[in-house]
């Protein structure tokens, strides 16, 4: 156990990445037990290959949030198999699901979820707080991630002094800094004006260009069009 842990820490890029898809859903569905039972996500199949830019689009109430929670390991499906990086997540105890979520998925939220009284640098470094990386290294990597999103000059600013677009860039840097397998974005432009939205989408394009697997969940067809592949969700059903 200890040996395995040490191995995986030495090797931040998991060895089982290979050619296995990042996300593989096989008949994955989620039913909230009643009464009455609510089928929030009908059993669905979806495969996201490494390096894809895929968008999931649907109106509000279509089950987007449920899909995000399942894909982001925040909620467990009640049926089917979900393989993330080839790892069957259904069999994992909560401790390892949490670890998988923290290490393999980078979240970007509509409302940014930045800590209000911490600087941009601290907010980005927070992503590595639970992964066992020493503090000094966390700060170095956080600075590099902020450089990558074009905010190398605003490392000391608190979120309150950043524009909406800058805040979302900080959030993207935070999602990137742990070198995840998947960037999971929930309405990343929902709180932004069109100019800022365009720049954030441009950044996502750039990241995809650099090899990152990006999954964007949105209600906006304009945003959905940016993806190389779009999946529609309606009434809890996924339509590839």
């Amino acid at each position: 156990m200890r040996l395995l842990r040490r191995q995986s820490r030495q090797d931040p890029q998991p060895s089982d990445e290979g050619d296995s898809p990042v996300i593989e859903l096989r008949g994955v569905g989620l039913t909230y037990p009643g009464p009455p039972p609510v089928e929030a996500l009908h059993p669905c199949d979806l495969t996201v290959r490494r390096g894809e830019f895929i968008t999931v689009v649907g109106p509000s109430g279509s089950g987007k949030s449920t899909f995000l929670n399942v894909a982001g390991l925040l909620d467990s499906p009640t049926s089917g198999r979900y393989l993330l990086d080839g790892i069957d997540t259904a069999a994992l105890p909560d401790r390892e699901r949490t670890a998988l979520r923290g290490r393999r998925i980078g979240f970007v939220f509509q409302s940014f979820h930045l800590l209000p009284h911490r600087s941009a640098l601290e907010n980005v470094a927070l992503a590595m707080l639970y992964t066992g990386i020493p503090r000094a290294q966390r700060l170095v990597r956080a600075r590099a991630a902020l450089d990558q999103v074009g905010l190398g000059h605003r490392t000391g600013a608190v979120p309150g002094r950043l524009s909406g677009g800058e805040r979302q860039r900080v959030a993207i840097a935070r999602a990137l800094v742990g070198r995840p397998s998947l960037l999971l974005c929930d309405e990343p432009t929902g709180n932004l004006d069109s100019a800022n939205a365009a720049s954030v989408l441009g950044l996502l394009d750039d990241l995809h260009g650099a090899g990152m697997t990006v999954l964007v969940i949105t209600h906006d067809p304009e945003v959905a069009r940016r993806g190389h592949r779009t999946v529609t969700i309606r009434d809890g059903r996924l339509h590839p």
């Binding site: 820490r9 670890a99 393999r104 639970y130 066992g132």
Partner: peptide, 16 residues
Amino acid sequence: ATPPSAVAPTRLSVRD
């Protein structure tokens, strides 16, 4: 008995 841990568990050091 369970399959070996696929990912290193997360942790929070006392100092952090």
